[in-house]
């Protein structure tokens, strides 16, 4: 479980988060949604220790962010950046190999290599394993990063708006991969999403943020409705339930 208690955060003079209290249970996909500037990405980057936590407390399982060792946390929590640009010229296999770094610190063993090959196969990357990252499509690059996080073998995976530069086929296939990782491997996935419909279609739980506070949380069926869109997003759109999942008609 990820426990977030009374977390405040300011960037310069702008106060982004005002006392967030939130429990993200183990297992399943939790989507963070909200209008631009609501603090979703900030909250995620605090959990991922990408920004220093100044006020409040965040724990992942038993590890306290800011107090636990970086290496221990890297064995429990993997993160995937918003941008998949890497300045180093790497092959797909090399990138995925980095996922094992927290476990072997630069000295990979036979078990590490086996896990890397398994990750490559699992995500259908074997045919392009020896291509350079800048030679594959955006969707394939995204998948390579997910495979790297998978090879890291953590219980938790955080993703910050991974669908940003993907077309609909890439976005759906990525969300299905995440769904599969949550269902088959029991991973806990926390994902910041822009598009409520993706959150509603793929997530188990949705947390809606507005102005640095938690505005609503629950299953998609519980919270995605016209009231949420009006109160949190400030727009009146209709919501229709398709296959048990509410979808916003845009």
């Amino acid at each position: 479980m990820i426990r977030i208690r009374d977390v405040h955060h300011a960037i310069g003079k702008a106060r982004i988060l005002h006392g967030i209290d939130l429990d993200i249970p183990k297992g399943g996909i939790t989507a963070l949604i909200g209008p631009n500037g609501a603090g979703k990405s900030t909250l995620l980057s605090l959990v991922a220790r990408l920004a220093p936590l100044k006020q409040g407390e965040i724990t992942v399982e038993t590890l306290k962010i800011g107090a636990c060792s970086d290496r221990d946390l890297a064995k429990v929590l993997a993160i995937m950046a918003q941008s998949t640009h890497v300045s180093a010229r790497l092959r797909v296999r090399e990138l995925v190999s980095f996922g094992r770094y927290p476990w072997h610190q630069g000295r990979p063993g036979a078990q590490d290599r086996a896990l890397i090959e398994a990750a490559l196969e699992r995500f259908g990357l074997l045919p392009i394993a020896d291509r350079f990252l800048d030679e594959v499509s955006g969707g394939q690059r995204q998948r390579a990063f997910v495979a790297m996080a998978f090879a890291q073998d953590t219980d938790y995976l955080l993703l910050d708006e991974p669908l940003n530069n993907l077309d609909i086929a890439g976005a759906r296939s990525l969300m299905r991969l995440l769904r599969e990782m949550a269902d088959k491997d029991g991973k806990t996935i926390v994902i910041v999403l822009h598009d409520i419909n993706y959150a509603s279609a793929f997530a188990d739980r949705i947390v809606a943020l507005k102005d640095g506070r938690v505005a609503a949380q629950g299953t998609p069926a519980q919270i995605v409705d016209t009231a949420l869109l009006r109160d949190v997003f400030g727009t009146d759109a209709e919501v229709s339930v398709i296959g048990g999942r509410p979808q916003v008609l845009v």
Partner: peptide, 8 residues
């Protein structure tokens, strides 16, 4: 970001 994620 990736470096932080890997514990560096």
């Amino acid at each position: 970001v990736p470096a932080t994620g890997l514990g560096e």
